[in-house]
Design a protein around this nucleic acid. Structure first.
Lengths: 133, 133
DNA sequence: GTTCATGCAAATCGTTTGCACAATG
DNA sequence: CATTGTGCAAACGATTTGCATGAAC
């Protein structure tokens, strides 16, 4: 008893995944809650977080620690790099190709077993940099 | 009135900076608190956090968002990449040289103004990978 | 009918803040 | 003495969890 649970379907979870796959803004849990609140009038944040964690566990969604006090979530689980705008706080995908060879390079330089890497660029996005001074 | 404060010396802040410069374990606030608790018997977490934030603001210390629920701090503010061990949770510095040219590359591919980037490798550290199965 | 999901509210945890008093310059 | 730093305790905000009920299979 008490093995790994075999998740059942849930309308809420399916809608959360669909929402995440349909946007590239790397939403927060609150954003997802606000979107679905209209559809499920008595949705709770507990349900949103529980399902987000399950989706991450299943490898269908990625959690992004963007240096803020809150997390963001990404429906695109293919490796890619991010850009964080230090002015407006937006998180954007970059068209820079992922360099998987870096993983082997680090393994050669260390005794670590490398599974992958993330890279985040910081600065001002197009909108914020054109509005500067 | 109420301009940017001109910070005065404080024994606590100096010791925190000294501690961070003397270790490469990328400590948490609690670790720093525990170290200094012996020296300042009635030290409080508030003081630790306030000083860490000041040191970060002054550019003397870097805050590391390591995907956990808590932050880590780094007395080494020279650009360098990190490795996060997914088993023991340790954060380690990598001898991989920082590729500053990536910043310009991203600027060429986008309309963003890039100030810098961070990169984190994930996997098992030497101790944890040798202990595996 | 057994297991998993939900909403609700309370709990948790890392961090921040208001306040009265001590230290700095 | 004007300003910043401290300890304390309370507040905060994002996330998690216990519980009774509802949905999935």
């Amino acid at each position: 008893m008490m093995g790994k649970p075999k998740y059942k379907r849930s309308r809420q979870r399916e809608r959360i995944l669909h929402l995440l796959r349909g946007t590239d803004i790397h939403p927060t849990a609150v954003w997802i809650y606000d979107q679905l609140k209209q559809e499920f009038q008595d949705l709770s944040m507990g349900t949103v977080y529980r399902n987000l964690n399950i989706l991450v566990e299943l490898g269908l969604v990625a959690k992004i620690a963007c240096g803020s006090t809150f997390d963001r979530f990404d429906g695109n689980v293919e490796p890619h790099y991010h850009f964080f705008c230090e002015k407006c706080g937006s998180v954007l995908d970059l068209p820079l190709e992922v360099d998987e060879s870096l993983n082997r390079k680090v393994e050669e330089l260390t005794n670590f077993m490398v599974r992958g890497h993330t890279m985040e660029f910081l600065g001002l996005c197009d909108k914020c940099s054109s509005r500067q001074q």
